[in-house]
Nucleic acid binder design. Sequence first.
RNA 1: GUGAUUGUAGCUCAGCUGGUUAGAGCGCCGGAUUGUGGUUCCGGAGGUCGCCGGUUCGAAACCGGUCUUUCACCCCA
Length: 454
Amino acid sequence: MKPSIPKGTRDFSPTEVANRTYIMNTIKTAFETFGFQPIETPSFENSSTLMGKYGEEGDRLIFKILNSGDFLVKADEKLLSNKESTKVISQISEKALRYDLTVPFARYVVQHQNEITFPFKRYQIQPVWRADRPQKGRFREFYQCDADVVGSKSLWQEVEFIQLYDTVFSQLGLQGTTIKINNRKILSGIAEVIGAQDKLIDFTVALDKLDKIGREGVIKEMLSKGITEDAIKKVAPLFSFKGSNLEKLDALQQMLAASEEGKSGVEELRFVINAIDQLGLTSASLEVDVTLARGLNYYTGAIFEVAAPKGVKMGSIGGGGRYDDLTGIFGMPDVSGVGISFGLDRIYLVLEELELFKSVNLPKPKVLFLNFDKTTDIAKMKAITVLRNRGVKSEMYPDLAGSNNQQKKQWKYATNREIQYVVSKVENDTYLLKNMENFEQLTCSLNEIIEKVK
RNA sequence: GUGAUUGUAGCUCAGCUGGUUAGAGCGCCGGAUUGUGGUUCCGGAGGUCGCCGGUUCGAAACCGGUCUUUCACCCCA
């Protein structure tokens, strides 16, 4: 049989692991610098914890785990014979792979509320799974790197998260990312002004196409969705929504004058924008984007999304926002949370495309002892033991060379693995040491090897 | 979930409009030469042509289904 891995999963080579570790460590260090503490949660949760938290689409994308044993025993025969999959699921599956890190975190907070000091700042770097169809930058198993704060309504958290994004991308050498920011209250305000809460999604989706289909196209689409001409007039400034963040905010403030909620959204946004203006960003730019409507299911305040530098074709490489009552669904009301996520796998692809990976050092021996002569095995292994104790990565080629060709293979092994030093001969405590980079060869003692190699 | 796309040795790919024992390069194994390496040469192993079914005298090639790859939509990291 031909070996293979499931759709949307990947193997990682030593180089890829090294690169991923580099990104992960950068993010982790930044998280800790900003005062976050790590937690981990199980890779699978009770289905009841996850189901219904991500909308209908989300439920479909959750990987369900079949019950152990005779899992069909509990299944209703009628449902089975009618092939009602969605109803049978809850009878044959009680566990599911985690879909994101936010909901498990909310569960964690509620479950451990007595041990937690609030505001609680936690970070979490773990894989998540989605039964999505794979495509560019989209996998069925991928890593999220989340930082969230619960138990604080302060807008300084929003400010700090923007700084955190900027810090990480700057340290990765990724110039020109755009942190888009919006506020759920502004969207609600717009809905209020156009007089249709239920049209909000249609509205933002249409508005988002402004670049592609132009002003007339957008208006046409909105009309076809049942948004009145009158309403469209009220929010007309959105169609020419250019200029600085402050100019946008001013326009929004006027437009949403009739909506208390809308005004409060503008206020919040203004606070964050002002703060960032004064604090400054290193590599990223902050941009108010009223079409940003992601995670509308549970975000209640700020909404974030990070776009890769222009010219890189890639979906968002990060996202987040504020959710005022996420723990409410687990029976702990009135705890405000806000958080962001880094998409490790997408950041990887962006860095790779822009050739931003510094040459990573793969773990490899510094010294290789060739194995041409059985009688000096012990001497070599003794020398290697000394070297290892002194922190010098070293190894002996395991198989004895029985022919010219096999000797050649050992030299080739050193070349292919880019091992810098080769010991080809051991005799009376002297070693024939060759530097593979400059072809220099000399006979020396073990101490001299340690000196030379360090 | 919708619509395309891909699938031939470990890897990258040839294989013309269906026609005898399916090829190359790289890699791997063995050997020769180079006295200790990235050279050259010789030889070898390795493929149910993704899988199942159909059309045909005959299919890797045509048709259907299925899985897989890549991509767009939806949604998202």
